[in-house]
């Protein structure tokens, strides 16, 4: 089980802030593919990955990063702080 979190417009498009996902995905990209296959709203949210950032256990990561041992995955748009 992995906790998957969504922020900003990804949260709005997918329609929830977090969910527990049962997955055997090896990498972030595999998880994205798995979610996108599940329902249209995921496919839509993940349709342009250049506009999506990912964090694994609260550290920024790449889409090819492995998920082994990861407890929390977060997807969000490029950050706009300051």
């Amino acid at each position: 089980m992995i906790d998957v979190l969504y922020f900003a417009w990804l949260r709005e498009r997918i329609g929830l802030p977090r969910e527990a996902v049962e997955t055997s995905a090896a990498t972030v990209a595999d998880l994205v593919a798995e979610l996108s296959d599940r329902e249209e709203r995921y496919a839509l949210a993940f349709s342009d990955l250049s506009a999506v950032r990912v964090a694994l256990d609260q550290e920024l990561a790449d889409f090819d990063a492995p998920l082994a041992g990861v407890r929390e995955v977060a997807f969000f748009p490029p950050m706009t702080g300051g």
Binding site: F76, M79, G81, G82
Partner: peptide, 11 residues
Amino acid sequence: YLKSRAPFWKQ
């Protein structure tokens, strides 16, 4: 760094 690397989103 804070603008692009701290997880804030403005609406």
